[in-house]
Design a protein around this nucleic acid. Structure first.
Length: 784
DNA sequence: CAGTGAGCGAGCTTCCGCTTGACTT
């Protein structure tokens, strides 16, 4: 047994550190937090100065048991959890649980897993910082209060009330998406005319090439643009001025969790959870450093390693030492930036994670490479018939620098409308006369801000200081699981635009069309998300404010610096917050999100769109009317906020009766699992390309026949009387009786077709007697 | 698998931030 026990958070880290520290040290992982607030009564004694009640969660009991055993049989325990608020708290919980004295237990910290950093840390142990621990407790308790007081308000006040939730992070994330959607819905595109002239000139080899020059202004109307082009009839064009300016581009900082998620989304099309899953794999196999980090820092050993790789691969001229500073104030920088552990591996074998690894490798390398050097040329071109001038600009790369390896991607949000890459210009001389090929005035439209992708939402949250590297991916999963937000594509719509062309002194007009507004894999708010957001914003404006987290983070910092008492700070938050909760429970009406659409022509009955118990719907007539109201579910892409009366009426065309097949009616409707046809008490899902509003009987009939034969193929054997079937499933053959399925024992799988009634019955009895183990055991009620 | 939609109200749900495994009726 080693003399010293070092406890870290991550097992992969434990392995590496143990190698560095040698045989006197055993390094073990506690797998993150080992205690959490109890769930009953929120786990907080609010009337007793917010005294927390901590328990060891079921899935941590084994870890804690092992830690206790090791701690007992060792001379000294060292706490080496991460150097941030959470890490400090984990160390304190370890003291409490393992019976260590926080006044003497050695606490060590390092920001990088390198031999010098760790050896240095061991030589300079400190003690637990209780102020920092208290800041963490305040953070934890505040989040619990917000979550566990707001969620029940939703259960009481929403018409759909199962599994709803609210929280400091998730509710603001949903709000961002809701507000962006409304911004887009309320946006009106304005058009203007952009003038481009195409000239011909000789390049260095004497070959004619075409280059582009832009007009002086954008014209608001087609008339103004036409007037300008008319003025250019018969004009001569000459170069009036040439300016050449040097320029440069610098590489981006190495990856943090958030920038990795953004780039993997832009360049590889990965969801944030896919990125994190692959990064975890790379980390566990020792290929990259820790993947949940907000730091852009690189260790000295890494810097030396990177310099070597650059010099070997590209030459010394391509290396430039850089130190990046974090732009983000909320960063806690407990780790390094995300980088390969060994720069000599430019790629790896694993096919799943190779692309992500190469992205990390390139980004890391590029971050220590020279600037790219450019030469920007701007030429002004005179028009003889008026006083206006045209501008041609070109950019030539003089030295590629970091661009040899890597260029950061962009979100459409950052792009201005004219974002075409400037090409190179032919050599031009002052007063040179130019041949005009043609001049065009093209109608262009302003665009609303794009909807968020998962990754651009993470970027926004990070800017607001909301959430942490370990929670970005789970938060995005949560708001989708709660059905506040959904990820989907949107088809664009066709739009005409006008072009005026001046060629050989003749003006012509053409109209072309383009597809606009198409989006792929974007986040859309659901009706539920909008209604919940509106409700929370109305009654809990403070928590829903985009600056709320930043504000309380400042207070947590004050606690961490000993300038504020943690429970006093909590009390200042809680008193008004809880008053809002009580007031809302007492006074707020149940929310239906109702919107009037108009009246039904034939009867004069009101038509509304609203939230029902099973989702958004439209309703004709009122509940208190003599005749029952009619209901119809909204389609997946429709929303209460934007549906029109015409679209609503269309929904009432279902169910449709298509006529008879084999003497039974065939009806078509949309159910819980999408469009289906019903025939002879059986159901058939419609194929994706079939539209339930227009589909015909002769398209449904093959569906019915097809399902019958598929069922025959799936069936191995049937015992009619006992209602037992032996069927072929995706995991192999199984037995079905009534609605329940039973697993066939391994030794009989291959001869499933030979199973007799008696054998099948025996298997069923056997499974019933020894039910298969469930994934998660049912929650234990305390026996005390 | 594929009805529903009012109101009453059993008993249920819920947060954020640290960390990884378990698992195919």
């Amino acid at each position: 047994m080693a003399k010293n026990l070092v406890i870290v958070e991550s097992p992969a880290k434990a392995k590496t550190i143990e190698k560095i520290l040698g045989k006197d040290f055993e390094v073990i992982s506690c797998f993150g937090h080992i205690r959490d607030l109890e769930k009953d009564d929120m786990g907080i004694d609010i009337n007793n100065n917010f005294k927390p009640k901590y328990i060891i969660p079921d899935d941590k009991e084994k870890v804690v048991k092992d830690l206790k055993k090791l701690a007992k049989s060792t001379d000294e325990v060292w706490l080496a959890t991460d150097e941030d608020r959470e890490g400090e708290a984990i160390s304190w919980h370890l003291c409490e649980v393992l019976g260590l004295d926080p006044e003497i237990t050695k606490r060590i910290v390092f920001h990088e897993i390198t031999k010098p950093a760790i050896e240095k840390a061991v030589q300079q142990p400190r003690l637990l910082n209780m102020n920092l621990v208290n800041a963490q407790q305040a953070r934890r308790i505040l989040d619990r209060i917000v979550g566990f007081e707001l969620s029940p308000v939703l259960w009481r006040k929403m018409s759909m009330r199962n599994h709803l939730s609210a929280g400091r992070v998730q509710s603001v994330a949903v709000r961002l998406i809701v507000e962006r959607e409304r911004e887009i819905n309320g946006f009106t595109a304005v058009s203007s005319f952009k003038v481009e002239a195409f000239f011909i000139a000789k390049d260095l080899n004497g070959k004619n090439i075409t280059f582009k020059a832009e007009g002086p202004t954008r014209f608001k109307t087609a008339e103004d643009a036409e007037k300008f082009l008319q003025q250019c009839v018969g004009a001569a064009y000459a170069v009036k001025d040439i300016q050449v300016k040097p320029g440069k581009k610098s590489p981006a900082a190495p990856f943090t969790t958030s920038t990795l998620q953004q780039e993997a989304s832009r360049k590889l099309g990965y969801s944030v959870s896919k990125t994190m899953l692959l990064a975890q794999k790379l980390y566990e196999s020792g290929k990259i450093t820790y993947m949940r980090t907000d730091s852009v820092n690189l260790s000295d050993t890494a810097l030396a390693d990177i310099q070597k790789a650059i010099t070997t691969n590209y030459g010394a001229r391509y290396h430039q030492h850089r130190k990046f500073k974090n732009k983000n104030e909320s960063a806690q920088e407990a780790h390094e930036a995300i980088r390969p552990t060994y720069m000599e591996n430019a790629s790896i074998d694993d096919s799943d994670s190779r692309k992500l690894y190469e992205l990390i490798w390139k980004r890391t390398i590029a971050s220590q490479m020279s600037d790219a050097e450019l030469e920007k040329t701007i030429a002004k071109i005179d028009i003889s018939t008026n006083h206006e001038e045209l501008t041609a600009s070109g950019e030539v790369l003089k030295f590629d620098g970091f661009l040899k390896v890597y260029m950061e991607g962009r979100d459409d949000e950052d792009e201005s409308e004219e974002d075409e890459q400037d090409g190179s210009l032919p050599p031009l001389a002052l007063k040179q006369v130019l041949d005009l090929k043609e001049m065009k005035a093209t109608e262009r439209f302003t665009r609303p801000a794009p909807r968020y992708t998962e990754a651009s939402l993470v970027k926004k949250l990070e800017e607001l200081g909301i959430g942490r590297p370990s929670t970005y991916a789970p938060t995005i999963t949560t708001i989708q699981k709660r059905n506040y937000v959904e990820k989907r594509d949107k088809e664009g719509v066709k739009r005409d635009f006008r072009i005026l062309v001046l060629k050989s002194d003749k003006l012509t007009k053409v109209t072309e069309s383009e597809n606009t507004g198409a989006e792929k894999s974007k986040l859309f708010p659901t009706d539920l998300g909008m209604i919940v957001t509106d409700f929370l914003s109305q009654y809990f404006g403070n928590v829903m404010d985009y600056g709320f987290t930043a504000k309380i983070e400042e207070e947590f910092d004050e606690v961490a610096h000993g300038k504020k008492i943690w429970n006093k700070m909590l009390n200042e938050f809680y008193t008004p917050f809880h008053k809002d909760v009580e007031n809302t429970l007492e006074n707020a009406e149940r929310v239906k999100g109702e919107r009037q659409l108009g009246t039904e022509e034939s009867t004069g009955k009101p038509i509304v769109a609203r939230m029902g118990r099973y989702g958004p719907m439209v309703q004709i007539g009122k509940a208190e009317d003599e005749e029952k109201p009619r209901f119809a579910k909204l389609k997946a892409t429709q929303s209460i906020e934007t549906i029109t009366l015409e679209e609503a009426m269309e929904l009432f065309k279902l169910p449709r009766n298509l006529g008879k097949f084999e003497d039974e009616d065939v009806t078509v409707n949309i159910g819980r699992f999408g469009p289906y046809a019903a025939h002879d008490k059986k159901f058939y899902s419609l194929k994706k390309e079939m539209d339930p509003y227009t589909v015909e009987l002769d398209e449904i009939a093959p569906l019915i026949v097809e399902k019958r034969t598929a069922k025959d193929e799936r069936t191995i054997k049937v015992f009619e009387k006992e209602k037992i079937q032996i069927l072929k499933g995706p995991y192999g053959p199984y037995i079905k009786q009534g609605l329940r399925n039973y697993k066939i024992p391994k030794e009989k799988i291959d001869t499933a077709a030979d199973i007799t009634v008696e054998e099948a019955k025996a298997i069923i009895e056997d499974v019933k007697a020894n039910p298969p183990k469930k994934k998660a055991p049912p929650r234990k009620k305390k026996a005390e």
